[in-house]
Computed example of a mutant assay.
Amino acid sequence: MAKIELIATATFGLEAVVKREIEKLGYRILRSEDAKITYLGDERAIVRSNLWLRSADRVLIKLGEFQAKSFEELFQQTKALDWEQWIPEDGKIVVTGTSVKSTLHSVPDCQAIVKKAIVEKMKETYACDWFPETGALYTVKVTLLKDRATITLDTTGPGLHKRGYRICDVAAPIKETLAAAMVQLSFWKEGRILADPFCGSGTIAIEAAMLAADIAPGLSRKFVSEEWSVIPKEIWKEERTAAYSAVKYDADIRILASDISSEAVEAARANAEEAGVDQYIEFAAAPVSAFTAPEEYGVIVANPPYGERIGEKDAIHRIYKDLRRFMTANPTWSLYLITSDKEFEGSFLDRPADRRRKLYNGRIETCYYQYYGTRPPKE
């Protein structure tokens, strides 16, 4: 198969992280835009991207892009695409859509037109008038932005944050993809200690362990494109085998995960066991005020409670005081913290954050504050 354009979608603010992940897999980036990275690949790239991308939301095949100010334009240009290259005669076709600042503003009508165009093309291709749609699922999305239509095919199915290890949950869990990005943005790595004193269901600690041990995040789940005949099952088998071989079982990983809630800690421990990384994480039920530095140099990556989720302001400010006390006493430690609290920076330390990044935790706008500790001396 010739090279195809793939799109990795991402939460706003994580585009640079996803771009680095794609480049690490060896693929050429074509464009980096708001919430999506476009790159070149092949069938194997579809498999590898789904298995390995930690911070992307899903992997799409870009089938076409064109101007569409009328339903006729949308119909004819959609029909002209190479649907037969991807969808077999028994394929189950579902069409979703969005429309922003476009003449064709009725999304249901656009979806119906796209579905009709695909069916008409398939009638010509397969010389039949009716399709059973009993086979694999093919979710097509029509995205209209300023009268420009982009037609994509979803290869992922349930979003990439669905790793498969979250068997126990707590209130307001952070998304696995966001947690993985937070760890990568902290530049923490194997051989150094990482702590999360607000671990909740353990997502940050688990994602950090999987990253350091080179465990592919998609290794324990299935993807919708695994059922597609166009991607040989042998490729899936080869890439999963390669992913299993890449795991570093002897990695030097030390992670501390604690929470004031003993129920949350038990949930985190169960999830870590399911993910196969519990041996790298030390769990404890304790408030942040009890947290002490076990080593001179370390990194805290945390998602503490904030107003929209849990806890009142007084309790949250007490948490800030405890963190400030720790950071003042341990200037060699670095802190990476996400919160929606606009007052955080002014009420936390006597100095501004070394870096800030606007991110979204679900629908909540947050800021990822980064405070760099003193670097350890070079060996």
Rank of each mutant, 00 (worst) to 15 (best):
A8S: 09
T9A: 04
V17E: 01
V17G: 08
I29G: 10
L30R: 13
K36T: 12
T38C: 12
T38Y: 10
L40Q: 12
E43H: 08
E43F: 10
R44C: 08
R44V: 12
I46D: 09
I46K: 11
V47L: 04
L51F: 11
S55H: 04
R58D: 14
L60P: 06
I61C: 12
I61D: 06
S70H: 07
F75D: 00
Q77W: 06
Q77D: 10
W86K: 05
G91M: 05
V95G: 00
G97E: 01
G97V: 08
T98Y: 12
T98I: 14
T103A: 09
S106E: 03
A112E: 09
M122V: 00
M122S: 05
W130R: 10
V142F: 14
K146V: 04
I151P: 08
V170C: 14
A172Q: 01
Q184F: 12
G191C: 07
P197G: 03
G200I: 01
G202P: 02
G202H: 11
T203S: 04
E207M: 00
E207K: 02
G218F: 06
L219P: 10
L219Y: 09
R221K: 03
K222Q: 15
F223A: 15
E227K: 12
E227S: 14
W228A: 01
S229H: 11
E234H: 02
I235M: 07
I235W: 07
A243E: 04
S258M: 08
E263F: 07
R269N: 11
N271F: 07
E274K: 15
V277N: 02
I281C: 07
A285P: 04
A286K: 13
S289A: 12
G298P: 00
G298E: 00
V299L: 05
I300Q: 00
I300A: 04
D322M: 06
D322E: 13
A329F: 00
T339V: 05
K342Y: 13
F344P: 00
L349F: 13
R351M: 09
G362Y: 10
G362L: 15
T366L: 02
C367L: 14
T374S: 13
